[in-house]
Write a protein that binds this DNA or RNA. Sequence first.
DNA 1: CGAGAGGTTGACTTGCGTCAATGAACGTGG
DNA 2: CCACGTTCATTGACGCAAGTCAACCTCTCG
Lengths: 272, 272
Amino acid sequence: MSSKPVTVSTRESGSKAVTGEPEKRAMNHKNHKSCRDRPTWVGRSDCLNCNILHEVLFSDLSKKELEAIIQGIYEPIDGFNYEAGAVIYEEGYEDNAIYTIRDGLVKLVRHEPDGKERIIRLMKTADTLGLERLLGRPYGHTAIALKPVTACRIPIGVLRQLGKEKPRFYRKLMERWANALFQADDYIMMLLSGTVKQRVVQLIGWLADVDHARKSRVMMLNGRDIAAMLDITPESVSRILAELKRQNILRPRTDGYYEYDAKALKEYANAA
Amino acid sequence: MSSKPVTVSTRESGSKAVTGEPEKRAMNHKNHKSCRDRPTWVGRSDCLNCNILHEVLFSDLSKKELEAIIQGIYEPIDGFNYEAGAVIYEEGYEDNAIYTIRDGLVKLVRHEPDGKERIIRLMKTADTLGLERLLGRPYGHTAIALKPVTACRIPIGVLRQLGKEKPRFYRKLMERWANALFQADDYIMMLLSGTVKQRVVQLIGWLADVDHARKSRVMMLNGRDIAAMLDITPESVSRILAELKRQNILRPRTDGYYEYDAKALKEYANAA
DNA sequence: CGAGAGGTTGACTTGCGTCAATGAACGTGG
DNA sequence: CCACGTTCATTGACGCAAGTCAACCTCTCG
């Protein structure tokens, strides 16, 4: 693999894309919106009427308790929109906030020493980003929107207060950690499981889950992101997806989603 | 405490040690679930004088508090010895206990549909196994000793009680989860990073950390385990290690450990 | 002693990465 | 509006890293 001692100037400047160079892909993150491209503020969040209240960190609280918490805090919980490609936060930073995804899809990435981007985890609606800040650690990843995202920024002060007043809240937090860990374990299994074809097929199934879409519908990532998740080349991804389309196992829809034939997909993977 | 690796019975029957043929176990997962590799009971644990007290879950408690907790509980905290290859617990089971490793090395594994074993995580001294039981979930992995292990079995009732009485205890738990997750992230990065040579070299460095051994000394796993961690073949592992030995970058010692030349190792990986 | 496990090594095969060329989709500015 | 640059997907040709298959060795243990 890239055994070249490529050195990439991380962050800042450089906006120059070196065309044709293999390093190009390594410098991918330059293509993402920088932190300076502000997300759109969509107002203070109305937690009491949140559409996903029942599945977020606050789901344990009664309306009354939640109201009390919200009244009592100094810092507001704000909502933001991020367009696809926007950076929500960056690895190593120490902003005093975590985020709950109300809608959309987010990738958590880290970078190899050579600058190549690696997708460590995908986060979906109702997932919580940046919990490590609660333990005083800097963000462990860079969070980038893969699809347009709506997220609530929750100052960690709110959570600390909550933890003090309702120790039971910690259980919720633990469940978050545990879920992330189980997802990571699944991810590891997927990464380790066989041929490139099999991994792509597994990823498709996994995306369908993540999306909790209706059966047989996946939101497809672009080839580069798939490649970054599975540690394969975009070319391989393209070849495989092309073949799946040719065999009518995967059918693009007009809305950017794909329909897929789960059974045929499985057979395809096994035949590989 | 008496950490001498007492060995008992084990694998007297036809049931293979844990590293047996995958297919067989896949067909009959029930077979190797039988706990024929009985651990040796080494008595009720003397937590107050634990040699790793400062780095375990209880490290926050004063001696007095710890004493009170221990007095108050119904179920005892027991210590056990496991020989290399012994199963500590199995995926899917719901025993009401977690384990703290006092000494040794443990692999957490899951099995592919085809029965192949995959190492998801390595756990070392002072790590905690089976925390998922606290959340009411079955064990998420099978835990197998890689080296002779001494571990304390802590009934989850003890932890629940502790959580009730000392909410601050939850923070410790969260840190455990977080650490496991960060380790998983590192693991993912390692798995995804380049050629087989590079991965093996990285694993060696990582094992050295895990072992927090003196510089330039690693405890080497057997080829199959390395292969199972990196998703490569034992043959490849053997070839690479052989070359490293030939180049004198890796030197076997008499005590089962290896000395290694960190700088040369790095160069070797880059040259790959 | 023989059986079984694991490690080592060689010869052969192949999956997939690399390199390169082309096309489609999109935005931007003249 | 079209021309151009950019990005991504697609496809082919080629070569190599690493998997497969197989033989043989060493150790341990019953």
